[in-house]
Design a protein around this nucleic acid. Sequence first.
DNA 1: GGCTACCCTGACATATGTGGTAGGGTTTCA
DNA 2: TGAAACCCTACCACATATGTCAGGGTAGCC
Lengths: 130, 130
Amino acid sequence: MQAKEAAERLEITQRMLRHYEKEGLLTVDRTLNGYRHYTNADLRRAGRIRDFIASGFSTREIRAMSACLSDDGDGPCEGGVEMLKQKLADIDRLRDELTQRRATVLDRLEVLEQGLAREAALAARITEDS
Amino acid sequence: MQAKEAAERLEITQRMLRHYEKEGLLTVDRTLNGYRHYTNADLRRAGRIRDFIASGFSTREIRAMSACLSDDGDGPCEGGVEMLKQKLADIDRLRDELTQRRATVLDRLEVLEQGLAREAALAARITEDS
DNA sequence: GGCTACCCTGACATATGTGGTAGGGTTTCA
DNA sequence: TGAAACCCTACCACATATGTCAGGGTAGCC
């Protein structure tokens, strides 16, 4: 497929696709007229690049584990594994924090809602009484 | 504690700590001489900021959820069921995002490790054969 | 041919995270 | 008093991800 469709499918801009290419993360071949022709494999690879960048990896880092980006991680990518593990740890730490925080907020929310319910009940009773 | 120790404990530079402050993500008070004094709460908050940035969030985004970064919601994180519900939704959204990012990284990691295992097995077989 | 909707490259612009350096104050300790 | 090891602010520099715009080619359709 050509650029527009590829970009749309990945939900990124053509500019970004060209950027990946320029940075050596992606190789796309051309049709006779010079237009880029994206295969499905290209698309999957580009999708991974997109995700990695969205997750805070730089093109440098991604390039370093370039071999790990193709459909089947062929090639030597121990460095990639290390990096990935590191990033995974980062994300996990964050997510745990969020989970904990969520519980805290939820707790408080429940307390508050109980309080409100109590007030409402009280108000209702007063209304009844009157 | 003062800047050096804080930076060392968080494994980031003092420069970065100051950056968080300048961007309004962190408020650190000072001792009489004007030196920053980091409390443990400051440290935890800064650690969260560090993690969010490392996970690809911009200071803008982090600022937007600033209230959820303190240990216990002081400021806008408290005061009103509506607000808390909003916060809960924010946190959930964030956590979902992280989960997605985590899955992306994990996926790749698994493919890679399978690849490495396959290679190792191959190498072992070759060694046996010889 | 002309119109429309694609495509290309290249340059400039902006935001952001981070490093570095300069110039200068404070604390501590001998 | 002087030196070492801290601290401060304020700047400039750099990389990078993206946007945007200019100038120009190509394909398809009426």
